[in-house]
Amino acid sequence: MLFALSDADAAGNIREASDLAYDMLKEYTSAEKCDNLTVIGFLKGESDYTLMLDAHIDQIAMTVTNIDDNGFLTVAKAGGIDIRALPSRRVTVHGREKVTAVFCATPPHLARKGVKYTDISEIKLDTALGERAKDIISVGDLVTFSAKPQMLKGSRVTGRSFDDRAAVACLIETAKRLSGKKLPFNVAFVLSDGEELGLRGTRTAAFKINPDEAVAVDVSFGDGIGIADTDCKKLGKGGMIGISPALDRGISNKLISIAKEKNIPYQTEVMGASTGTDADMIAVTREGVRACTLSIPLRNMHTEVEILDIKDLEAVCELLCEYILAGGVKDD
């Protein structure tokens, strides 16, 4: 499921991953396609109280801003991308047809003084189409990474758009496990749009659902060489339960106590202020919503070679199911 979701794209007007997630979610919930890319699934429970689970469906991308006569494109970022890693990278341009293109690398005889990376507009994208490029590609077309997901050793996998398709996969799996069960309250599964552009899609979805509490499932920094222990958590040690002044501490505590009680691996992620996830936005919807984050440790975030541990996805699904069946913070 994760591989299929990773290998489909969703950004701007490209709906592949949205459509795929909708087809999966409607097997287990009453699902609907909403504005832009957003998909919402709903499971009815035994009270009017509603818990919203959120994972964003959109991914980082780039967009074409200019096409020259020789088939070289200028692009703008739509989401945080390390431009130092772009030269000689293959990407997909979603034009009238999909085109494989390569970011220009400074040739060695011109790179002697060293290359400075300041703006993505300085790194042109080579379509190798020459003047034909203008027939196939238009300004505004989206550009996405193209690496296919792949198994690594142990329980690790690599691929693109695991941010946040890994969480989308967790939500669909959670819906599957809860489907047909007696639930203490309603559960809305929101696969939201526009997170990478500033938490946009979840705002309207949260307004529409008007939930009593919410858990945003996202990715956060996994460990690696040169990354301070305080900035990351270990892959394979469970989901990261968010604790932050902007989050509801009651939910954090309940998630922790359920994880302990049920022996589900977990880690905590303490943040100083806002979390940078959809939880920030959901919390300030309408009259306010109790919100928390549950994050999957991820290496190489915002690249096409993100790495995660499947064990962490399992831990997140288990924790979400047990938390919901235990009634969340409904009675707290």
Binding site: D82, F221, G224, G226, I227, D231, R299, N300, H302, T303
Partner: peptide, 9 residues
């Protein structure tokens, strides 16, 4: 996979 620090950090 060749890893490095993510852009956010």
């Amino acid at each position: 996979v060749i890893c490095g620090k993510p852009i956010h950090l």
